[in-house]
């Protein structure tokens, strides 16, 4: 789920993503969990052969009663990632980082953005 609505909804065998503490895979009957997610590739294993992948921004995961609910601020289907766009965004964020003072809020925001965009670029590159 993203602020712009549901990105994916359905039954899957396994959800794999990355929390602040490391990679995480969740299957059925996992114990109730609430976790904080870092930007990563989100893989939804629908069954053995089919995997739906998203590039996922920061967010949260809640697993209860065999329902995994992921709240992320953005989820882009991997196929829609565009390297050119990402590189342009990275450049823009880097300029912002350099323009902002150390320790200021703008600095932190730029760092967060850069971190996310770099992850997305890695994901996009792994695809090609």
């Amino acid at each position: 789920m993203t602020p712009d609505g549901a990105a994916y909804s359905g039954e899957v065998e396994m959800v794999s993503t990355r929390t602040v503490d490391g990679s995480l895979g969740i299957k059925a009957n996992h114990e109730p969990l609430m976790a904080m997610l870092n930007p990563a590739e989100l893989r939804l294993h629908v069954d053995d052969s089919e995997v739906v992948s998203f590039a996922q921004g920061e967010g949260y995961l809640q697993m209860a009663n065999n329902q995994a609910l992921l709240l992320v601020e953005e989820a882009t289907p991997i196929a829609d990632l565009k390297l050119d766009d990402l590189n342009a965004k990275l450049e823009e964020a880097t300029t912002r980082l350099e323009a902002s003072e150390d320790g200021s809020a703008a600095h932190d925001l730029a760092e967060r953005d850069i971190h996310r965009i770099q992850r997305f670029i890695e994901i996009a590159e792994a695809q090609t």
């Binding site: 602040v20 503490d21 109730p32 609430m34 904080m36 949260y60 009663n65």
Partner: peptide, 15 residues
């Protein structure tokens, strides 16, 4: 139903 079993990653305060 599930409250006592919640697992947190990281701790709820951090969340």
């Amino acid at each position: 139903e599930t409250e006592p079993l919640w697992d947190y990653e990281p701790a709820p305060e951090e969340l």
